[in-house]
């Protein structure tokens, strides 16, 4: 699947396109097919996202995992500061990234 990501313009938060808006949780992302660039351009023009781009991802049930490690780390947070990540209480979070 293809998903759309970028950073919130004002806060810099990593965000994912949900079909109707943006979420900081990658599992909320939707398959944008071949519409990602158009959606991204429109959202950037509306100042809701910055530095947006489309990536490959894999869906497994309700979980979505970016294909590349860089985007998995973006989706989670720094692996060396799990207390600052989006899954601070998940002991298996290292497996999630790697």
């Amino acid at each position: 699947m293809k998903i759309l990501t970028g950073n919130d313009l004002a806060t810099g938060d990593v965000i994912w396109w949900t079909g109707t808006g943006w979420s900081i949780h990658v599992d909320d992302a939707v398959d944008v097919g071949d519409k990602g660039d158009d959606i991204g351009s429109s959202e950037a023009a509306a100042r809701r996202v910055n530095s947006q781009y489309v990536i490959d991802a894999v869906q497994n049930g309700r979980e979505i995992r970016p294909a590349h490690i860089k985007d998995r780390i973006r989706a989670l947070g720094p692996t060396v500061r799990l207390d600052l990540s989006l899954k601070p209480a998940d002991p298996t979070v290292g497996n999630w990234v790697i």
Binding site: N7, G12, V14, N50, I73, R74
Partner: peptide, 10 residues
Amino acid sequence: NGLYLQLHAY
């Protein structure tokens, strides 16, 4: 002004 956009934030 030293402000980058990095992996998780500015």
